[in-house]
Design a protein around this nucleic acid. Structure first.
Lengths: 162, 162
DNA sequence: ATAACTTGACACGGGTAGTGTCAAGTTATA
DNA sequence: TATAACTTGACACTACCCGTGTCAAGTTAT
């Protein structure tokens, strides 16, 4: 097995990263919610958007890293009228996955881009096949296979990710 | 889109790499076949094994690179009685894929290991689902989905790879 | 008005990956 | 058998990647 080398930064006695679980909902740390999304009347969504410092604090990542990821096209947060980056919770979830790929699996950014595409394609594929298998004995196997695959690949994804 | 940076080495006026197609059979370059596999009578296989210098020449890769890949667990060529590495054509095919992932897609070795696992899992998954879908309207869709996925991911694989 | 923040650009440093070199051992050929 | 050619494993070097630090200029909030 290819053993991933030491972590990038030797933090001395740094606290270990939290478990590689991607939160489905904003946690209590997501305070200082700067700006609320324009609420659509028919959809009572409670999720806000976060300015870069808040997003970076939630993710425990450096703001410059977030900016670089955007420049490379890995993420695409919204912008305020004054050009401030506004990170939605979807952006945060995606960044959690990216952080997992980089820190836990040791990918470089080319591998990260590939994996984001992979996850997207797998989700679309599952949707198509689940639809086509409806009513057949294969009904449940599609989702089961996908869950098994993601688990084998160490991709901690709640369905509907990315 | 994440644009992969410049190639690793600025070769000056180096010749461009051959197209990223993984040969299914040994080409004419695979001369100087050093040692033949012990021929099983019931299976007239014509494929030989190659010593590291020959494998490296076929692949246009550095012998040290092949040794490093083995040390990291990406490949596992056989050994002669005198500890010489013996690369089968399966090993060569795998190395073609690895070279593609590194040179064309820009992966580091962690991403390479991930992708090798991915390809393995996808092939097993296809086999299971093709078997289960036999006789249903889904009969052909499984292989079609897999082909589409591999194409989208820029994985030039003939079925049965790796 | 002023403090705090964001943006974009640039640079620095640790780590990765491919390649070069070398002594010791093995294989092939004369 | 003698010798040339090759392989092995170890080590070192170098280019490049990626996270992070810094800074001036502009924006936002108190």
């Amino acid at each position: 097995m290819y053993q991933r080398p030491h972590p990038k930064v030797s933090d001395g006695a740094a606290a270990p990263r939290p478990a590689p679980v991607i939160p489905l909902m904003p946690g209590p740390l997501a305070s200082k919610r700067v700006q609320m999304e324009p609420q659509v009347e028919t959809e009572p969504v409670v999720q806000g958007v976060y300015v870069i410092s808040v997003a970076a604090r939630i993710l425990e990542m450096h703001p410059q890293t977030l900016r670089k990821y955007e420049r490379l096209g890995l993420i695409n947060p919204g912008r305020s009228v004054g050009m401030l980056r506004l990170y939605s919770w979807e952006d945060i979830r995606k960044l959690y996955l990216i952080r997992h790929l980089v820190e836990n699996l040791g990918f470089n950014l080319a591998g990260v881009e590939f994996t984001l595409t992979l996850v997207n394609q797998l989700m679309q594929m599952q949707e198509r096949m689940s639809g086509a298998a409806k009513g057949t004995p294969l009904e449940g196997q599609v989702e089961q296979e996908m869950t098994h695959l993601l688990h084998t690949l160490n991709l901690p994804l709640d369905s509907g990710s990315i």
